[in-house]
Every structure is written in C-alpha cells, then in structure tokens.
C-alpha cells in the first residue's frame, strides 16, 4: 500500500513536468499546426544551459533558471527566424521535416558542447533529503517540479485567455487568413508561439533534470515522455495536457515501481503502448474534440 501511495504521489509530480513539456508542443500545434519533433531536444538544451550556468559558473539555481529561460526565448526566436519563417505557408509536412532537421542539429550541438557528461544541479536551495509525510516520502525536487509546472500551466492558460497576444494567438489558430485580415500580425504571433514553446521546453528540461540529472539522452527520453501526454491531452488544450500529464506520470511510476526492476527500461515504454491502444479506441485523445473534415 505504501508503495502504491508513493508511486501515485511521485507520478503526479513527474506528470506535471511532462504536462509542462507537452504544453510547449500544444502552443506550437495550436497556432501553426506543426508537431514539433525537436521539443525533446529543446528540453535537453534548456537543461544543459541551466547546468552550465549553475555548475560551471556557480550561479544560484534561480538565477540560472531565469537566464536559461531567456536563452531559450532567444533560441525560439532564432528557430522561428531562420527555419520556420522561411517555411511559413508551406505544407505541415514540410514544416515537420524541418523540425526533423532541427532535432539533428540540436543533438549535434549538445554532443559537441556538453558531451556526454551528466550534470547534477546544485542542491543548496532544494535539499536532496526526503520529507516524510505519513507513510510516504516526498522528495523536495519532485514537489518543486509539481508546484512550478502547475503554476506555469495556470499562467499560460490565463495569458492565452486574457491577454491581447493570447487573443491574437487564438484567432490565428482558428483561421490564419481571417486573423491577418483583421490586422493581427500573423508572423509576430508565430514568433511568439515558438518563444513560448521553447521556454516551456527549457523549464520542463530543468525540472526534469532536477529529478535525476541532465544528460544527452534526455532529448529522446523527454520526447517519448511528452508524446503520450500530447496525444491524450487532445493536441490543443493546456488543461488537457496537464491532466494527461498526471495520468501518464502515474502510469509511468506504477510501471517503474512494479516492472522496472525485472524489465529495465519498461518505464518509458508503457505509456507509449497505452497511447497506441488509446489511438484505436479514442482516436482524438481523452480531452480532444473530434474534427470534421471538409474537402
């Protein structure tokens, strides 16, 4: 029973982080209809930038995180400017292929700069020792991940609903040409979505790295972790992404607790199997709306 409770608790914490990563995908998917395959690599880049800042340059963790998010915003801007804007208006197929190229570039850059050395964030602010709550142990870095991810989700949703830019983004996602005709600068909106997407990825990368370490395999593993979340969440909803994150996190942790020791590596595979099954029975995800196609 303790073990089960522990798995549920950890699953919710880790799920919130997955949800945050998937939100980055949702932002980009909503506005430009592109599935960003490089999201996992962006997570890894964010994690490594914060790692460099906090470990090599010994900045405090919060400063490293803030600087890292600025850097990620810059990276998002560059990606949009150099890759996505020249391809605007092309088919989504072409744009997905461009993210494939991006994936390879980011992977190569990470390997060349940071190599394969794992980074562990300093543990001054967030202590390493567990807190005992009744029968379960709560790790501060897990709790920290949960809080930051949930706050980020709320902020993002509010921004999307209430702010001017948010309204513009929603309008663009409904109909690009119509939005342009009422005076919304679509290129600016797309730029903003890439910036927000990259920041989400960077933050998720840092939080993910705090659980264990940041390492060069995070790109692949991160992508594999957020894809089921993205699909369950129905591709276009922030709250859906967060709730789906909780589900995937719990599944992940249950698999980890009961199967991992005998079948190493299965933790990352179980959510994917679940995703394939769900695609058969509920093709548009748990929180998505069914779309009607017109010719």
């Amino acid at each position: 029973m303790n073990v089960l409770m522990q798995a549920l608790l950890d699953g919710i914490c880790i799920g919130a982080i997955y949800g945050l990563g998937a939100m980055g995908l949702v932002v980009i998917q909503k506005s430009s209809g592109v599935f960003n395959l490089a999201q996992g690599m962006l997570m890894m880049v964010g994690g490594f930038i914060a790692g460099s800042l906090s470990v090599n340059m010994s900045l405090p963790m919060w400063a490293a995180a803030v600087l890292c998010m600025l850097a990620m915003a810059l990276i998002g801007l560059i990606i949009n400017f150099l890759v996505m804007r020249p391809l605007a208006g092309e088919s989504p197929f072409t744009q997905i292929m461009a993210t494939v190229g991006l994936m390879s570039i980011l992977y190569g850059i990470v390997m060349a700069i940071w190599g394969t050395l794992p980074y562990i964030y300093p543990t001054e602010i967030i202590p390493i020792e567990n807190i005992e709550i009744g029968v379960v142990l709560l790790s501060p870095s897990y709790l920290n991940g949960l809080i930051i991810a949930v706050v980020a989700c709320i902020v993002l949703s509010l921004y999307y609903r209430k702010s001017r830019e948010g309204t513009a983004m929603r309008a663009t996602s409904e109909d690009e040409e119509l939005a342009a005709s009422v005076g919304i600068r679509v290129t600016k909106v797309l730029q903003l979505t890439w910036i927000i997407g990259s920041i989400c990825a960077g933050l998720a990368g840092i939080l993910f790295g705090m659980l264990g370490s940041v390492n060069y395999m995070m790109g692949e593993i991160g992508l594999m972790a957020i894809i089921p979340v993205f699909v369950f969440g129905g591709l276009e909803s922030f709250v859906g992404a967060l709730l789906a994150g909780f589900i995937v996190g719990v599944v992940n942790m249950l698999a980890g607790t009961y199967l991992e020791v005998t079948f190493p590596g299965i933790t990352n595979v179980v959510p994917l199997v679940l995703m394939l099954t769900i695609l058969i029975f509920k093709p548009y995800g748990l929180f998505g709306e069914e779309r009607i196609e017109r010719v």
Partner: peptide, 24 residues
Amino acid sequence: AQYILPITDVAFGVVIILILIFDP
C-alpha cells in the same frame, strides 16, 4: 575525434533545412 560525429549530425540537419527552404 569526439567532435566528428556531432559535426556530422549538425551538417545533416543544416542540409535538410537548407534543402527544404531553398530547393524542396
């Protein structure tokens, strides 16, 4: 020698994107 393969990855990605943009 450890920079050779990462450079290959970067070159690969850059060529893909260049081709997509300039000569699809």
